[in-house]
Design a protein around this nucleic acid. Structure first.
Length: 281
DNA sequence: CGGTACTCCTGAAGGC
DNA sequence: TGCCTTCAGGAGTACC
């Protein structure tokens, strides 16, 4: 499910519920998700004010006044649900973690597939630990540009599709937005990453930023599981140019579908890629 | 180093 | 209606 735009939307939705608030109780309904839920975390966070909530790549981090904190990853099917003070909490299947805040707000982490996780971290040490230590730049931050991308791709023999999915090259991209950004930039997903020119990298970097910004503005993309913290769907899926659109025309394309076959679908390193053979070279 | 296959897990969708 | 297969937004590992 969630790539950078969805995680950003979730993090923004969590801020009013968590940031500045005090954790009254942290409840675990099972002992593990993808990784064990840290047994010490409820005691470390109880009574603590959450001072900061932030996103890095597809991860959400929260830190208490003590410096102790958590790293949250939504995996494929993770959903965060904010329940306002005074509103009844109706437990749902796969509700694994509940933050009960002073004042009555609840934040619930629901994850059917349990590919997501919640682990402990610390404000002073998180950046030195995996996976953040080796993580690439934030695509919407100052540390990302065509030159930075060009340098990260130089010498890489793998496809540009696989390279962009590698969080060490650039943070936060997943299958959907890589397909969309490559279409936007007019670059075929099977191109060798290290063969891209400086000019192509410049265009690709801009395309990545544009696609991500537009998706965030649309509240992310909802294919199956994704919902924001209020349970609402995003609507960027209606703006996909190529993703999940095999056989259809890409936007503004005047080619004959019967002749061109429309958007092509191939499998690269086990993941579906979609592209327009006419506009991407 | 790179590519492929496989793994975790559940549920939705499609075929029959 | 139901059973079975296939596939899914992530990411790590084993292996060639």
């Amino acid at each position: 499910m969630p790539e950078l735009p969805e995680v950003e939307t979730v993090m923004q939705g969590l801020r009013p519920a968590l940031e500045g608030g005090v954790v009254e109780r942290l409840q675990f309904n099972r002992k593990d998700l993808r990784f064990p839920l840290p047994p010490e975390m409820p005691a470390l966070l109880a009574g603590q004010r959450i001072e900061a909530l932030q996103r890095r790549g597809k991860y959400i981090l929260g830190f208490a006044g003590s410096g102790n904190g958590f790293v949250l990853h939504l995996g494929m099917s993770g959903v965060m649900r904010v329940i306002a003070a005074g509103q009844d909490y109706v437990a749902q299947k796969h509700d694994h973690v509940v933050f009960e805040m002073l004042g009555g707000v609840r934040v619930v982490f629901n994850d059917a597939r349990r590919f997501g996780f919640l682990v402990s971290t610390h404000r002073d040490r998180w950046e030195e630990a995996a996976p953040f230590k080796a993580m690439g730049p934030e695509p919407l931050g100052n540390g990302f540009s065509g030159e930075v991308l060009y340098a990260a791709l130089s010498g890489k023999a793998t496809s540009i599709k696989a390279a962009l999915l590698d969080q060490r090259v650039v943070a936060g991209l997943g299958n959907i937005y890589v397909c969309e950004a490559l279409h936007y930039a007019g670059i075929l997903p099977q191109r060798i990453a290290g063969d891209l020119s400086v000019e192509e990298c410049a265009l690709l970097a801009v395309s990545i930023c544009t696609v991500l910004r537009e998706a965030i503005a649309a509240g992310g993309s909802s294919l199956r599981d994704y919902r924001n913290t209020q349970g609402k769907m995003g609507y960027f899926q209606h703006h996909f140019a190529v993703y999940d659109r095999a056989g259809k025309a890409c936007p503004d394309c005047d080619c004959d579908i019967g002749e061109s076959g429309g958007v092509q679908k191939i499998v690269q390193s086990g993941r579906s890629s979609y592209y327009c053979a006419r506009r991407q070279v």
